[in-house]
Design a protein around this nucleic acid. Structure first.
Length: 259
DNA sequence: GCATCAGAAACAGTTACCTCA
DNA sequence: ATTGAGGTAACTGTTTCTGAT
């Protein structure tokens, strides 16, 4: 959207005939167009409203009738009160009918979503036109799709954190045990030669600190390849903890920042 | 430059409908 | 034929951002 500063080129005059070929036709991203056009909102809204009106009252359209429940206050500008059009013919009386998008429509939307998670108003209108949907439907689909993506990502993050937490608990238990052994050792001193080494120490090449090479940090296990975990230090893992947390919440932040 | 307001877009949460086991 | 669960389109209210004044 313009709020994200996306400079997506958009060609409305592509002569798109089939929805299935739409993404391949370069609708979503026309990298050659760096025009950074500032879309005139009024024009877009007017066009979208016209589209809505057209589809809402078209007998042949796949669009079901609106619920008529939505108040006049909120909502996007491209909405049109189509409560008067009983397209679905399914009872009416304010009960909203739900359209099931066809596989082709869903595929095209999905394809476009892969490219951009948001649409400019112009893109929305054009996409809706090519799919024979209302712009509002495209908008809703993208909203719901973003929500599903976020939910999925949250589940993945949660799973990672759970595993990390388990490993930290294991680590904690092991360290307590080790501490108890050391204290016991200290209480009953033995000749140095007889005492076996408890751990193997090694030096981290990146930070020149001594690390316990035998026990990689949970964070390092969770996020292999992360530069912060090269040495396997637990305090580095702690740093990573905040880093990971930042990345996680950064999802939301990133979205906000991108807007 | 700063405060305020209105409009628009996105989000979170919810509802209602549809499909399927 | 009925029913409950799951998926998802569509909705409402809130938040955030931006441009105008």
């Amino acid at each position: 959207m313009e709020r994200q500063g996306l400079d997506l080129g958009l060609s409305l005059g592509l002569g798109l005939t089939t929805a299935a070929t739409w993404p391949a036709a370069g609708f979503c991203l026309n990298s050659g167009m760096a025009e950074q056009e500032m879309i005139r909102r009024d024009d877009v809204v007017a066009a979208a409203a016209a589209e809505d009106e057209r589809f809402a009252c078209s007998p042949g359209s796949p669009v079901s009738s609106g619920s008529g429940k939505r108040g006049s206050g909120s909502g996007s500008g491209d909405e049109v009160d189509d409560a008067g059009c009983d397209v679905g013919g399914g009872g009416g009386g304010g009960a909203r009918k739900k359209l099931r998008l066809s596989k082709d429509q869903a595929a095209v939307l999905e394809e476009c979503f892969k490219t951009h998670h948001t649409l400019t108003p112009k893109q929305k209108v054009a996409l809706a036109k090519s799919l024979n949907l209302r712009p509002r439907q495209v908008e809703v689909w993208f909203q719901n799709r973003r929500a599903r993506t976020k939910l999925k990502q949250t589940e993945v993050d949660c799973e990672h954190l759970k595993r990390w937490c388990d490993q930290l608990a294991d680590d904690n238990r092991r360290l307590h045990k080790e501490l108890a052994e050391l204290r016991a050792l200290k209480a009953t001193p033995t000749p140095p030669a007889a005492a076996p080494p408890l751990t193997t120490l090694t030096m981290c090449l990146s930070c020149k600190r001594v690390a316990n090479a035998g026990v990689p940090s949970p964070a390092a296990a969770m996020f292999p390849g992360h530069p912060q975990f090269l040495c396997g230090f637990r305090d580095h893992a702690g740093a990573a903890s905040s880093s990971y947390g930042g990345a996680s919440s950064g999802l939301a932040k990133g979205v906000r920042a991108a807007r």
